[in-house]
Amino acid sequence: MSHADGSGYSPNGETVPEGSRLTRDTAIRGPARPAPYIGAGILLAAAILFPLMPQLYAFDAPRLGGMPFFYWYQLLWVPISAILTGSAYWLVTREDRRRRAEARAGGAPQEGAAAAGAGMEGERP
Rank of each mutant, 00 (worst) to 15 (best):
A32P: 03
P34W: 14
V92C: 08
A108W: 11
E95D: 13
Y57F: 15
L52I: 05
L43Q: 00
A116G: 05
W90T: 07
F59Y: 15
L76K: 03
T15D: 04
M67L: 12
A58C: 01
R104F: 09
Y89R: 09
Y71H: 11
L84R: 01
T15K: 15
A61K: 01
P34M: 12
E14C: 10
W77P: 00
L76Y: 09
A105M: 04
G6P: 07
A46N: 02
G106E: 07
E123C: 11
M53G: 04
Y9S: 06
L44T: 09
G39P: 00
L22R: 11
L84Q: 02
I38A: 14
G106P: 05
F50C: 05
L75C: 12
V78S: 07
T26S: 14
T85A: 15
A32C: 04
E102I: 07
L64V: 12
G13S: 09
L52R: 00
A40G: 05
E95P: 03
R124C: 01
R97Y: 06
G117L: 08
Y9A: 12
P68E: 07
G6D: 05
R104W: 11
R100I: 12
A113W: 13
S7G: 03
A45C: 11
S2G: 15
I48S: 08
E123R: 14
A4E: 02
Y37S: 11
D25N: 13
I80M: 09
A47S: 06
Y37P: 01
G8W: 02
R99G: 04
A40K: 04
